[in-house]
């Protein structure tokens, strides 16, 4: 009988080996993204329009903005346009990641490359890491510029008042906010391998997520049952804190009624990281479970 002698792997070899996969996947993602460039230009326009629509509506309906601001910011003063601009930009960013990761497995399955991928010895987590790092970098850059542009158009005063530090924090919190979304979307993607109809499910979820994270309205104005979902959804935390830093609305902990937290933004950032770990593990476990189930029965290329 043939016997292969496996080399003992040192940690540095293990690290290097996985880094090759991460870099390879990152590069491939960039090359593919380049062929869909027209989509990228839309990614810039959509959040701007999404910001414009409710603002136009507010102006069209003729409600007093001061009055709404009092409603939105619970007594604080802040920029309602900035509030909505940041809400719709972060929502769009989350959707980009949601689409990227939840349709990923299904698309590979439909085009026939999923088998090739799963037949390689590359570990799933390094492939995901490569994809995630590209997706975050690419989408955060787009989102950042789209935010700046929408603020320039709708909330110029607010933009010029933001210091460099809050702007930097906005970027950091945005990146951290993407992390749990990757695990969550991967989890959805794995579920979809079972249910097949990914596009309609994700279409549903994008509205649901927008509803619970309070894209246009503060979560305090949502009914209690919706608010329960809001708290469980990581992006709600990110968007509230980013708004707190930039638009002057209360941070997430304050919205929840916790008044005397020492570093409210730091604490909720840690909670977001906790979400990232939680959803990362769940996504991975569920995918492995379904992969096994599919392998046991129909095989991965069936659609």
């Amino acid at each position: 009988m043939i016997q292969i002698i496996e080399k003992q792997e040192s940690f540095s070899y293990f690290f290097k080996k996985n880094l090759i996969v991460v870099k390879g996947v990152f590069r491939q993602q960039w090359q593919i993204a380049k062929s869909y460039l027209s989509n990228t230009s839309i990614a810039f326009i959509v959040p701007i329009v999404m910001t414009a629509l409710p603002l136009l509506l507010i102006r069209a309906v003729g409600v007093d903005e001061q009055l709404i601001a009092a409603n939105f910011f619970g007594g604080h003063s802040g920029s309602i346009s900035g509030f909505i601009a940041i809400g719709s930009n972060i929502w769009m960013l989350m959707l980009a990641i949601l689409w990227d990761f939840s349709t990923y497995l299904r698309d590979e399955q439909m085009t026939g490359t999923l088998e090739t991928l799963l037949m390689s010895p590359a570990k799933r987590y390094s492939i995901i890491a490569g994809r995630a790092s590209f997706s975050i970098l690419f989408n955060v850059i787009i989102s950042f510029f789209a935010t700046i542009i929408s603020l320039l158009i709708f909330a110029r005063d607010m933009l010029f008042e933001i210091g460099l530090l809050p702007l930097f924090l906005l970027l950091v919190l945005t990146v951290i906010g993407c992390l749990p979304m990757i695990g969550l979307s991967y989890f959805i993607g794995a579920l979809v391998l079972k249910f097949k109809e990914v596009y309609s499910l994700v279409n549903l979820l994008q509205w649901f997520f927008g509803l619970i994270m309070g894209v246009y309205v503060p979560i305090t104005s949502l009914p209690l049952i919706v608010r329960v979902f809001s708290i469980m959804f990581p992006a709600t935390w990110s968007v509230s804190d980013i708004r707190a830093i930039t638009a002057g609305s209360p941070p997430m902990l304050l919205l929840l009624g916790i008044k005397n937290a020492g570093f409210p933004i730091l604490i909720s950032t840690l909670i977001v990281i906790g979400f990232a770990i939680f959803w990362g593990i769940i996504g991975f476990v569920v995918f492995s479970k379904y992969e096994l189930k599919i392998k046991r029965n129909e095989g991965l290329s069936k659609y």
Binding site: K17, N18, I20, V21, K23, G24, V25, R27, Q28, Q31, I32, S35, Y36, T111, G112, T113, E115, T116, L117, M119, S120, P121, A122, I127, S301
Partner: peptide, 27 residues
């Protein structure tokens, strides 16, 4: 296995091979 459907049509042949090489941990 699936012949022509096992590679990415949006990439060049070279990019495909480079990508799959990385999945086999080849620098």
């Amino acid at each position: 296995l699936m012949g022509e459907r096992s590679i990415y049509w949006k990439l060049t042949g070279y990019q495909n091979l480079e990508y799959f090489a990385s999945l086999y941990h080849i620098p």
